[in-house]
Simulated scan of single mutants.
Amino acid sequence: MSTNFTLQDIASLRREYTRGGLRRKDLPEQPLALFETWLRQACDAQLPDPTAMTVATVDEQGQPYQRIVLLKHYDDSGLVFYTNLGSRKAQQLANNPRISLHFPWHFLERQVMVLGEVEKLSPLEVLKYFHSRPRDSQIGAWVSRQSSRISARGVLEGKFLELKQKFQQGEVPLPSFWGGYRVKFYTMEFWQGGEHRLHDRFLYQRSDNGWKIDRLAP
Score class of each variant (00 low, 15 high):
D136C: 11
E117D: 09
L39E: 06
A217R: 13
E29I: 11
G179S: 04
W38N: 10
T57C: 03
R40D: 12
L124N: 15
N96M: 09
S100D: 06
T18Q: 12
R149L: 05
V155C: 06
T3P: 14
P134L: 07
A42T: 04
L174E: 07
R14C: 14
R149N: 02
Y17T: 13
W178C: 01
Q169W: 04
Q92V: 07
K166Y: 03
E171R: 08
V126K: 07
Y65I: 02
W38C: 09
L115C: 13
R182Q: 04
P48N: 04
L115H: 13
Y181R: 05
N4R: 15
L22M: 12
L163S: 03
L108H: 02
A45W: 10
L93W: 13
V143C: 01
S176L: 02
L39A: 07
D26R: 05
Y181A: 05
K184S: 09
S122C: 02
L156R: 00
R206I: 01
L121Y: 09
R215C: 12
V58E: 04
E60D: 10
Q63S: 04
D75N: 14
A33I: 14
V80S: 08
R110M: 06
D136R: 10
L32D: 05
Y82P: 09
S2G: 14
L85H: 08
E36I: 11
R135M: 08
D136T: 14
L163A: 00
V183M: 10
F190A: 09
L79R: 00
L156C: 02
W178I: 00
W191T: 01
R153E: 05
V126Q: 09
R149T: 02
G180W: 05
E171Y: 08
P97Q: 11
K120Q: 10
Y129H: 11
